[in-house]
Simulated assay, not measured.
Amino acid sequence: MRLFSSLVRKVVVGAALAIAPAASFAGVFISVGIAPPVLPVYTQPICPGDGYLWNPGYWGYGDAGYYWIPGVWVRPPQVGVLWTPGYWGWGGSAYIFHAGYWGPHVGFYGGVNYGFGYGGVGFGGGRWEGGRFAYNTAVVNVNRTVIHNTYIDNTVINRTTVYNHTSFNGGAGGIQAHATAQETSYAHENHFAATAEQNNHMQMAHADRNNFASVNGGHPQTAAYSRPGVRAENQQQRIGQGVQSGQLTSHETANLENRESSIHNQAAADRATNGGHLTAQEHQQINQRQNNVSRSINEDKHNANTQAHPHAEEHGGGGHEHK
């Protein structure tokens, strides 16, 4: 009977996620019978500009199980608000996702140590000062020659010094933390849901099958972005790393670069046709082509072909995809 209930729960959740728009995932009640994977260790990308706030990466849940939503720098919906990350918590019979939100204070996020200022309680990565956000460069990656509104507070515990990577609260093996009276009061303040930019970032993460734990074994290839919508830049970096390490042959590199160039040209042409914007269908098409290239980069970097031994390259890798 218990197994049947668990199966029904997963079917219901899967059906809800299948029919709901990806951009609304944060608002869907998600109940899962198995715990999310541990948090991966990764380096925070440098802040792309003044006024961006950090959103830590976390495990979402989709039609193929848990998938990683990369950490990212985003713009807040207004001056003075901070991001409270979402978290998974044991609800007695299943793991329930509590969606993140914007508000004047950082509330309870399950005691999960997301790092980069989110050590489990509150946020030590920065603060608002006179309408501008000041960054604590002891724990967040900011170029102080470009962004001058900074300070240093070394008392904040950074995730790189902590070895507990548990991603959920409560239950067996979970973090045994409870909301304080102050955090509970913060939960009743005026809140803002995730912005359109954040929702699009979640949608892009869900569309990339490489983010699913069933594919990456709990070790996502890309754990963080400098800002939403820079996937093409990230894949160029992955290609560059493959060339530098010798994992990509000249033939594989040329093929990947040509495909990336084709995607770029397609996006530019679509934007020119639509007044500088992409339609939802065009976004989906571009993302699917990037998914194909991402998969090929991973395959090409882990096949038998290398710059030192390129003789097998005619037998594999370097697949093609079309618009």
Rank of each mutant, 00 (worst) to 15 (best):
G65S: 02
Y114F: 15
E233T: 06
A267M: 07
T145F: 13
Q290I: 14
V293N: 05
T195R: 01
Q44I: 14
A187G: 06
A16H: 12
A268Q: 14
L53V: 14
N211G: 04
G27Y: 11
G317H: 13
N154C: 08
P76Y: 07
V106G: 11
V12S: 13
R295L: 10
S245E: 12
N169F: 00
N292V: 03
N136D: 01
Y67F: 02
L39N: 08
Y42L: 07
A99F: 09
I263P: 00
Y67V: 00
V146A: 13
A308C: 04
Y66G: 00
F4Q: 09
I157Y: 06
G86T: 12
S296I: 08
G318H: 12
A207T: 05
G111E: 13
A213R: 02
E189Q: 09
A64T: 01
W54P: 10
A269Q: 14
G173N: 10
H206Y: 06
N190V: 09
Q241R: 08
A22H: 08
I46P: 11
P40E: 09
A94S: 04
W83I: 08
N291V: 15
S262I: 02
S167G: 05
Y135H: 04
P45N: 15
Y151Q: 15
E260I: 12
A26M: 09
A232C: 03
G80F: 09
H315Y: 15
G62T: 01
H98A: 12
L53C: 11
K301N: 07
H283I: 15
H219V: 04
P21D: 05
Y95A: 02
A224F: 01
Q237W: 00
H105R: 15
I239E: 01
A254S: 14
N303K: 03
V121C: 09
T84H: 05
G92Y: 08
H302V: 03
Y118E: 07
R2T: 11
A16G: 13
G107M: 06
A267N: 10
P40W: 04
Y225V: 09
Q44H: 13
D208A: 05
V12G: 09
M202E: 07
M1A: 15
N141P: 12
P76L: 04
A20W: 10
E252C: 10
T84S: 09
G71K: 03
A194M: 01
Q236H: 04
N200P: 01
F29W: 04
G126Q: 11
G49K: 13
I30S: 02
G33R: 01
G276M: 08
N234C: 02
I175R: 09
A94R: 00
Q244K: 15
V140T: 13
I286S: 11
H148L: 13
G170Q: 01
Q237E: 06
Y67H: 00
A254W: 10
I297W: 00
I157M: 10
R127T: 11
G110W: 12
T161N: 02
G276P: 11
A22M: 10
A205R: 03
G318T: 12
A272F: 11
N190S: 11
W68E: 00
D50K: 13
G124I: 06
L7R: 14
L53Y: 11
I239T: 02
E233F: 00
Y186I: 09
Y67P: 00
S24K: 07
Q237I: 01
T222A: 06
T160H: 09
G240D: 12
T184L: 15
Q307D: 04
V8K: 15
